[in-house]
């Protein structure tokens, strides 16, 4: 059973937050949603979580009992202790015999000794791990995570990823908005958003392979508008170049090239249609 979104569109006033987004979400896989600020990642995830934002399109999703969601804003009740947060989720989802699973989830992210701790007083990473544990407690078929690892220390990130991959290996479909592209590379599929439009979607290696033109590595870029830093050197995109295998292209390179190509296309459109 897979979940689908077809021709999903959504406007906030005059702004197109999402335009004709299509997505297929399959159990047992992690699907990454990436894009810059304001790309529409959080909006898409809210729709997937079941919020009614007056969207249009066809959406085929599980019922609320089968969805776990960690919003970008936190996802925990700061005045409650770790244990009370888990208990609230258990009661809201009408779970029985939930304590062993709660204990296991908290142990996997090193929060098992935090039972009485007020969650609002914990560090950012600890709060995100708790939010992740809360989302996974009801064993949802669809797990939706909005930048769950953003701003989290490397150890906590690793623990969170352990939770996420375990949920996927147990059969859950995971959709996660991400800011770290090294994390996105581990996903089964990627959806790259730009101003609410889908720039690319598919397997990470397919997105990288589909890049038009070539990317060359230089000490000093010859065209700064098409160049970006990579370590001590520069990567520069040549839209008319012939792809070669000498430069290793990462997902980050591919995402940057796709955004540059989109910006160039928008500029050409504006030049062709002066206001």
């Amino acid at each position: 059973m897979s979940w689908t979104v077809k021709n999903l569109s959504l406007r906030f006033g005059d702004v197109n937050a999402l335009t004709n987004v299509n997505m297929t979400i399959t159990p047992g896989n992690i699907h990454a949603v990436i894009g810059g600020d304001g790309a529409g990642k959080s909006t898409l995830l809210k729709v997937l979580a079941g919020l009614d934002l007056h969207q249009t399109g066809q959406i085929h999703l599980p019922t609320p009992e089968n969805i776990g969601f960690v919003p970008a804003s936190g996802g925990i009740f700061g005045d409650l202790s770790v244990e009370e947060n888990m208990e609230f989720v258990a009661q809201a989802y009408r779970l029985k015999n939930w304590k062993p699973r709660a204990k296991m989830l908290l142990k996997h992210c090193a929060l098992d000794s935090f039972g009485d701790r007020i969650s609002g007083q914990m560090s950012g990473g600890e709060r995100r791990k708790l939010a992740g544990s809360m989302a996974l407690l009801p064993k949802p078929g669809l797990v939706i995570l909005d930048e769950v690892t953003t701003g989290v220390d490397p150890v906590s990130r690793m623990e969170l990823w352990r939770l996420i991959t375990r949920a996927a290996s147990d059969g859950a479909a995971v959709v996660a908005a991400m800011t770290y592209l090294d994390e996105a590379e581990r996903s089964a599929t990627i959806l790259l958003l730009h101003n609410g439009h889908v720039l690319a979607s598919g397997r990470p290696q397919d997105i990288v392979a589909a890049i038009q033109g070539s990317i060359i590595t230089q000490d000093t870029p010859t065209n700064r508008s098409l160049a970006w830093r990579r370590g001590r050197q520069w990567q520069q995109w040549d839209p008319n170049g012939t792809p070669d295998n000498t430069t290793s292209i990462t997902l980050e390179d591919a995402a940057i090239v796709l955004e540059l190509a989109q910006e160039r296309a928008e500029e050409r459109t504006q030049e062709g249609n002066p206001a």
């Binding site: 021709n7 569109s9 004709n20 729709v47 079941g50 919020l51 009614d52 969207q55 249009t56 399109g57 066809q58 959406i59 085929h60 999703l61 599980p62 019922t63 609320p64």
Partner: peptide
Amino acid sequence: APKRSSNPTSPVSAAAV
């Protein structure tokens, strides 16, 4: 109170699209 889609497994305003 944010609203939940009334029936998430069915088409949502497909005609509008």
